[in-house]
Amino acid sequence: MVLVNVVLRYGFGTGSIKMQDLASYAFAVFLILAVPLCHARGGHVRVEVLSERLPPGYLRRADALAWALFLTPVFGLILWAGWGDIAFSWSIGEGSTTPGGLGGLYLVKTALPVAAALMIVQGLAALFEKRGA
């Protein structure tokens, strides 16, 4: 989408601010919603040199501790602190900051609390999955 917009702008002297905004919106939503998916597939960062030598019970306890001390508080804070901004954005139907840009920025902003909630749920699901294994 960005490449098409660049070719249109510099090759044909035309371009679209809305297409530029759409590329930015799509990238932002893709990036933030990829975080819970990465966690679901076990793509989180771990020091493998240490973890492959530790017993599985230790790793389960370490993951539970990380979920309780880091994952839930951080993503819970994102939910709590961002709620007012999201509500205001929806109430005014916030659009692009660029003149002539694409509307619907409030939808893009909504992806952040959705991803935060998905991370909390995914962390909890990972805990229960490991507990049952």
Rank of each mutant, 00 (worst) to 15 (best):
V4N: 13
N5I: 09
N5V: 08
N5Q: 13
L8G: 02
R9M: 01
R9H: 09
Y10S: 11
Y10A: 06
F12H: 13
F12E: 10
F12Q: 12
G13I: 01
G13C: 03
G15I: 04
I17T: 15
K18W: 00
K18F: 00
M19C: 01
M19L: 10
Q20Y: 08
D21E: 05
D21M: 06
D21L: 01
L22T: 13
L22W: 09
L22N: 10
A23S: 14
S24Y: 10
Y25I: 05
A26L: 11
A28P: 01
A28D: 07
F30I: 07
L31C: 07
L33Q: 09
A34G: 03
A34N: 08
V35A: 04
V35D: 02
P36Y: 01
P36S: 02
L37V: 15
C38E: 10
C38P: 00
H39E: 05
H39K: 12
A40T: 02
A40H: 05
A40Q: 10
G43V: 00
H44I: 12
V45K: 03
V47Q: 08
E48W: 04
E48V: 13
E48A: 09
E52W: 05
E52M: 06
E52A: 02
E52Q: 13
R53P: 00
P55A: 15
P55E: 15
P55K: 15
P55L: 11
G57I: 01
G57Q: 14
G57T: 11
L59F: 02
R61I: 05
A62H: 11
D63I: 04
D63P: 00
D63Y: 15
D63R: 15
A64C: 08
L65V: 15
L65C: 12
A68Y: 07
A68P: 00
A68N: 04
L69E: 13
L69A: 14
L71K: 08
P73I: 06
P73H: 07
V74I: 14
V74L: 10
G76R: 14
W80P: 02
W80H: 13
W80Y: 15
W83G: 06
W83V: 04
D85H: 14
D85T: 14
D85K: 11
A87D: 03
F88N: 12
S89D: 01
S89C: 03
G93I: 01
G93K: 01
G93A: 01
G95K: 12
G95N: 06
G95T: 11
S96W: 04
T97Q: 10
T97C: 00
T98I: 14
P99Q: 06
P99G: 07
G100C: 07
G100K: 12
G101K: 10
L102M: 13
G104L: 03
L105R: 13
L105A: 12
Y106S: 10
V108L: 09
V108K: 13
T110I: 04
A111Q: 13
L112C: 05
L112D: 06
A115S: 13
A116V: 05
A117S: 12
A117D: 09
A117M: 09
L118P: 03
M119C: 07
I120R: 06
V121I: 15
Q122I: 03
G123N: 04
G123W: 00
L124P: 02
A125G: 03
A125P: 00
L127T: 09
F128C: 08
E129M: 09
E129P: 00
K130T: 05
K130A: 04
R131F: 02
G132I: 11
A133M: 04
